[in-house]
Simulated scan of single mutants.
Amino acid sequence: MANYHAEIVALNADKIGTAAHGTADFTLTDETLTITIEMFDTPANTEHWEHFHGFPDGKQALVAGPAQDANGDGFIDLMETGSVSGTTMVPFDDAPENMDIPHDRYPVADATGHFAYTKVVPLADLQDHFEQAFGSRDLQLDKRVVYIHGVPQSLVLPATVAGMVGDFDQHVTLPIAAGQIKRVD
């Protein structure tokens, strides 16, 4: 068994009006990956996409910061995270093992901006899909970062904020918090 933890801190807080924060814990056994995420002060009554991001080649992913705001609009959007965080890899949704990312089956924050998520994932199924997508069965959790996304549609975003994914716009994909995953045992 291996345990991993991420302290999740706010991104774009000055622009979205709330400083989302929380924790993510991962327990990896021979048969399962248990994911537990608890978030506070996220945009209320809003669905929040959540994933781990990383580089398929195993390079260390890092949390994006102000230096990644390439267009200088004051927002760190999804596209700007890629240079240091890599690509979206595994969703924390109703079935992470399927690695089906663009949909509306993610946690929704309550009226106070809180949500808690726990999922026990069949490891072999996740590894099969991970290998198909990235060429390896090794999740390398300690080389990944967690991102929490999503702001209300009512938030006015400048046209420079990128992040359209399928039918989902920048309100859905805008990062609001992130944390580096570290092994803790």
Results as ranks from 00 to 15, higher is better:
Ala2Trp: 01
Ala2Asn: 13
Ala2Arg: 06
Asn3Trp: 01
Asn3Lys: 09
Tyr4Gln: 08
Ala6Gln: 12
Glu7Thr: 13
Glu7Ile: 06
Val9Asn: 15
Ala10Gln: 11
Ala10Glu: 15
Ala10Lys: 06
Leu11Tyr: 09
Leu11Glu: 11
Ile16Val: 13
Ile16Pro: 09
Gly17Asn: 06
Gly17Ile: 08
Thr18Leu: 10
Thr18Ala: 04
Thr18Pro: 07
Ala24Tyr: 05
Ala24Glu: 13
Asp25Thr: 09
Asp25Leu: 02
Thr29Met: 05
Thr29Tyr: 02
Asp30Lys: 07
Glu31Trp: 00
Glu31Cys: 00
Thr32Gly: 03
Leu33Trp: 01
Ile35Pro: 06
Thr36Tyr: 00
Glu38Val: 08
Met39Tyr: 00
Phe40Arg: 09
Phe40Asp: 14
Ala44Gln: 13
Ala44Leu: 06
Thr46Phe: 03
Glu47Pro: 06
Glu47Val: 05
Glu47Leu: 11
His48Ser: 07
His48Phe: 03
His53Thr: 10
His53Arg: 05
Gly54Pro: 05
Gly54Thr: 05
Phe55Gly: 02
Gly58Val: 07
Gly58Cys: 09
Lys59Met: 13
Ala61Arg: 01
Gly65Asn: 14
Gly65Gln: 08
Pro66Tyr: 01
Ala67Arg: 11
Ala67Asp: 15
Asp69Trp: 13
Ala70Pro: 01
Asp73Val: 01
Leu78Ala: 11
Met79His: 08
Met79Trp: 08
Met79Thr: 08
Glu80Gly: 02
Ser83Trp: 02
Val84Gln: 06
Ser85Ala: 15
Thr87Leu: 09
Thr88Gln: 07
Met89Gly: 01
Met89Cys: 05
Phe92Lys: 03
Phe92Asp: 06
Asp93Pro: 00
Asp93Arg: 00
Asp94Gln: 08
Asp94Gly: 00
Asp94Thr: 08
Asp94Ala: 02
Ala95Met: 11
Asn98Asp: 15
Met99Gln: 10
Ile101Ala: 09
Ile101Lys: 02
Pro102Trp: 04
Arg105Ile: 11
Tyr106Cys: 07
Val108Cys: 04
Ala109Pro: 04
Ala111Trp: 03
Ala116His: 03
Tyr117Phe: 11
Tyr117Trp: 00
Thr118Glu: 15
Val120Leu: 09
Val121Phe: 00
Leu123Gly: 08
Ala124Val: 10
Ala124Thr: 12
Leu126Val: 09
Leu126Lys: 06
Asp128Tyr: 08
His129Arg: 13
Phe130Trp: 10
Gln132Met: 12
Gly135Pro: 05
Ser136Phe: 05
Ser136Met: 05
Arg137Ile: 07
Arg137Ser: 09
Asp138Val: 01
Asp142Gln: 11
Lys143His: 14
Lys143Leu: 02
Arg144Phe: 09
Arg144Ser: 09
Arg144His: 10
Tyr147Gln: 12
Tyr147Leu: 14
Tyr147His: 09
Ile148Lys: 00
Val151Glu: 12
Pro152Cys: 06
Ser154Gln: 14
Ser154Thr: 15
Val156His: 07
Leu157Asp: 12
Ala159Cys: 02
Ala159Asp: 15
Thr160Glu: 14
Thr160Tyr: 03
Thr160Gly: 03
Ala162Asp: 14
Ala162Trp: 06
Ala162Pro: 00
Ala162Lys: 13
Val165His: 12
Asp169Leu: 05
Asp169Met: 03
Asp169Pro: 00
Gln170Gly: 07
Gln170Met: 10
Gln170Ser: 15
His171Thr: 12
Val172Phe: 13
Pro175Met: 06
Pro175Lys: 04
Ile176Ala: 03
Ile176Glu: 11
Ile176Asn: 04
Ile176Val: 15
Ile176Cys: 04
Lys182Cys: 04
Lys182Asp: 12
